[in-house]
Write a protein that binds this DNA or RNA. Structure first.
Lengths: 232, 232
DNA sequence: CTGTATCCGTGTTGATACTG
DNA sequence: CAGTATCAACACGGATACAG
């Protein structure tokens, strides 16, 4: 073989920041293209290769493989081969990996003040569920308690409002007070654009079953942060 | 079938994630190589081109130029040409840009659990001051009030402990209770490694003037997060 | 279905040298 | 001091082919 191995090592060194600062290390760990979005897709539980591709518009298989290897080598995710007869492989966050959720949410909340944000782009079910956690206006919750199911791209998700906070998970929507179903992007005008839920239902953008009142109250708990005004 | 203009546009598009998720937008805004570290260097106030190069080991001038342009175009920083006779150019965070401080600190705090962290690498004065904010153990502060000056690479910094919290800034060390001076890396064993301040002074690694008692108490307020144990 | 391993065109990075 | 110009590596994304 050639000296590719040597140049490969040098290339890796060049990718690092040589900085003792934790933030620099953080960017080495999850700052590569796609890495943090892979973490995002795993925040609601283990996923398979194909699930990740579906949630990440435009990533190619080889790059996804590389990133998964890198994240696993760093101890942020683990690659689990489930035994037969399940015979599935999944990628899951480690405990430490899950601890970066506040960073993922905080970055998103900050970035959404940018005028550059375009809500018409692809929006994965996981991203939608996390956005609820990201953009809940705590002051609006009051003493509401609700368990709202979301049916997105064939999967069940759950959002639970209790004690002024919210929990989201990928879980069957049984014993939810109400269940919403529709395209992920159809939820944005309702949760963040002030569109009344009943109007979205009337237009056929989504469907509600169960306690419509509670679903309607739920739909008003969220808000996008105020946009930044850029000086010309 | 390919026109050069078209490929140029496609190339730009390729850099983005085409994702409505805020986290993806955040990675577009500050996820490029070096970008978040430039923001870090600006968190304590405006800096000049040369200051940034000095704080960022290994960045090249052309890349720094590109990143500054990108961050300015995004509205995260502004490039200010000061009028004569000052005749200096500085880069400063916008109000919105400053708002990502919690993300910078949170990412650093999370990443420092990695076994990959190497405290022997380059450490900029700004990174040291921010690390105090990042790694303060609130429970240890009690009712301590202290104003500690740090003299780092010819510049004065200030850390103020009050009301159980900490404030850091780039400011003259006048009316500080005590002033510490030394290489940035010399502070790590003291703040995060449990090395007694007096011992570091005895070894000549740094100097203390003023209220040594208070400086010593100050030096015990911080801790690195617990390291992650990686499965073999 | 779940990846892995190629090749290839292009863009980005970083080192060096250079200019105002 | 504050950038710009140039250029050789290399990483990326897309396509494709292929293996378990």
């Amino acid at each position: 073989m050639k000296l590719e191995k040597v140049t490969g090592i040098e290339a890796r060194d060049r990718k690092w920041y040589d900085d003792a600062c934790g933030t620099a290390l953080g960017m080495e760990l999850v700052g590569e293209r796609w890495s943090l979005l892979i973490v995002r897709e795993l925040l609601l539980g283990p996923r398979r290769f194909g699930d990740l591709r579906a949630g990440l518009p435009g990533i190619s298989a080889n790059v996804l493989t590389q990133r998964l290897e890198g994240l696993a080598a760093a101890g942020i995710i683990v690659h689990e081969h489930l035994p037969p007869p399940a015979r599935a492989q999944v990628y899951a966050l480690t405990v430490w990996g899950r601890e970066c959720e506040p960073v993922v949410l905080g970055l998103g909340r900050w970035a959404l003040r940018s005028p550059r944000h375009d809500p018409m782009l692809h929006f994965s079910p996981t991203a939608l569920m996390l956005s609820l956690k990201m953009l809940l206006v705590h002051a609006r919750v009051g003493n509401l308690a609700a368990s709202i199911g979301l049916h997105l791209r064939g999967e069940d998700y759950l959002a639970k409002i209790a004690n002024g906070g919210i929990q989201v998970s990928r879980a069957p929507v049984v014993d939810a007070d109400a269940v919403l179903a529709g395209e992920t992007n159809a939820f944005l005008p309702i949760f963040y654009g002030g569109l009344p839920l009943e109007q979205a239902v009337a237009s056929g953008a989504l469907t509600v079953t169960g306690d419509v009142d509670r679903a309607t109250r739920f739909s008003t708990l969220f808000a996008l942060p105020e946009k930044v005004v850029l000086a010309a």
